[in-house]
């Protein structure tokens, strides 16, 4: 489906200018091999600067690799980068091109530019807006939406027009749980109905565990591990760190919250809990759904033990923070 062999990309060294120090050449892809099968949800995980976006840009024909081979559905995308746009749908990190359009027009225009005629484009637009629950926002410009809503609108634009491969660069950044769920349901539906393959970049380990079939962990342009989430998890101690920040006093009158109190290390409004993943997910469900959510200011889920795997695999410890974002 999607095969990558010996991919190398080096960004040249930049000369120092006034105010900007010189940077040495960076090998952003350093001999990457990947095999993604049809119908798979395949994740690229890694800290900031690990080379995830560089890899994705080479897979989508936006960046020409120095060496190596990229084949998608039997097409050589190094030799024919222009074919990428006819094989895959891409969601980049930036929304500037769509920012001033309304949600509906962003989806419709993108569908038109994917080669659909007016009628088909409008039908796809309506379907995807319905599917992602964007109906109430359809007439508003992306610029006026919150970060998560804007991201969701960009996902809508990426999903219109059938493509056998979807390449999504951090699709759920900033989204609330409802929006996240809508995105994963939409992705799942395309996979079940049409065998769509999804390649996705993520920072979020928890999300990676729940939605991905396989994960490649990248560091400094190399794949340092590639396995199912369970396989990777087996390398890690199975505790999850949950941090809850309450707006004021913790709502101890709610039984679910009171039950967590004993396990928590409280420091002012902040509670820290170390729980098995299932219990952590249950705890998050308790505090983000129902009456406790009103009292909740913020929460963080992190698997500190993945850092250990990371170190064991030779990853950089100082930048591991980037791997474990909420």
């Amino acid at each position: 489906m999607c095969t990558v062999r010996g991919l190398v990309k080096t960004y040249p060294a930049a000369r120092g200018r006034r105010g900007a120090p010189a940077t040495p050449a960076v090998r952003a892809s350093d001999g990457i091999d990947l095999d993604v099968s049809r119908g798979e949800v395949f994740g690229l995980l890694g800290p900031n600067g690990a080379g995830k976006s560089t890899l994705v840009r080479q897979l989508t024909g936006l960046l020409r690799p120095d060496q190596g081979q990229v084949r998608v559905l039997g097409h050589d995308l190094v030799r024919h980068p222009e074919r990428a746009s006819r094989l895959l749908g891409y969601l980049g990190q930036d929304s500037t091109a769509l920012d001033e359009l309304t949600v509906a027009l962003a989806a419709e225009t993108t569908a038109r530019l994917r080669g659909l005629d007016v009628r088909a484009a409008r039908a796809e637009r309506d379907a995807v807006i319905e599917e992602l629950g964007l109906g109430g926002l359809a007439g508003r410009p992306l610029k006026k939406l919150s970060g998560g809503q804007r991201r969701l609108a960009c996902v809508a634009a990426a999903l219109v027009g059938e493509r056998p491969l979807l390449v999504l660069d951090e699709p759920t950044t900033g989204m609330d749980p409802v929006a996240r769920r809508a995105v994963w349901a939409a992705v799942d539906r395309r996979r079940a109905e049409r065998g769509v393959t999804v390649l996705l970049v993520t920072h979020n380990v928890i999300e990676a565990e729940t939605v991905l079939d396989r994960v490649a962990v990248l560091d400094r342009g190399r794949v340092i591990a590639c396995d199912t989430p369970a396989g990777l998890k087996a390398m890690v101690a199975d505790e999850v760190r949950v941090e809850l920040v309450w707006r004021a006093e913790a709502p101890l009158h709610i039984p679910g919250v009171a039950a967590l109190r004993d396990a928590a290390h409280a420091s002012g409004r902040r509670w820290t809990l170390r729980l098995p993943p299932d219990a952590a997910r249950a705890a998050i469900a308790t505090v983000t759904g129902g009456p406790a959510f009103a009292a909740l200011d913020d929460f963080t889920l992190a698997t500190p033990s993945l850092e250990d795997v990371y170190v064991a695999l030779g990853g950089r410890t100082e930048s591991v923070e980037g791997l474990v974002k909420t």
């Binding site: 989508t60 936006l62 091109a97 080669g115």
Partner: peptide
């Protein structure tokens, strides 16, 4: 558009 990477949107459409 070029500086922010917004051109990618058009560049990945046929």
């Amino acid at each position: 558009l070029r500086a922010s990477g917004g051109l990618d949107h058009y560049a990945t459409l046929p």
